[in-house]
Amino acid sequence: MTQNEHTVSSEHSHAHVHRDDIGAKMGMWLFLFTELLLFGGMFLMYAVYRFQYQMDFKIAAMELSVSMGTLNTIILLTSSLTVALAITAIQKGNKFLAVLNLNITIIFALMFMVNKYYEWSAKFEHGLYPGSDEMLSLPNGQIMFYGLYYIMTGLHGLHVIIGVIILAIMLVLVIKDKITSDNYVKLENGGLYWHLVDLIWIFLFPLFYLIH
């Protein structure tokens, strides 16, 4: 019998270090797809209510600070660049640049959240939050605009926070040499997640701040 030649028992020890970078990225893309659909549900509702309350949406949108929104857009877009630079750096084996760029990305992300905090608190000071008397005195369409604004930018903010956590983990893995020039799919996937956060914002920004 030639059984032993056919058995894979000798490979057993390797079975779980089996690596498939394309598979890993495919899984990540599928996950990003579900994230898009999660926000897709919200965009659908935005479309329905925008259609229903065109004037109210226009008036309410003027209350948002375009300069704050623009600043945050610039911050987030730049952070997408730095995370891409970090990936290129690690591909070329430059650990220092990778660490530097990941740190910059995280700082940008935190700046985004700080801006968001000031933006939201300014609204809260004017009494504009769900359920407040000020809010309930507005026309229905404006209530809806602010409701969607808080839910969609809030959900996005939550994703920024999750993104920061993911980037921080990636940073640690790079420092510990777990992510290297010949095994960087984790960082690529982390980067993909961060680009998604950026991408969602690119749609939120014009829908809430720019269309008047």
């Binding site: 329905v48 026309p139 229905n140 409701g147």
Partner: peptide, 17 residues
């Protein structure tokens, strides 16, 4: 939790949605 009103007709929302 917050009574945002997305589905509440009293606040302009649509329960059919």
């Amino acid at each position: 939790t917050f009574g945002v009103g997305i589905f509440d007709p009293a606040l302009g929302g649509d329960p059919i949605l």
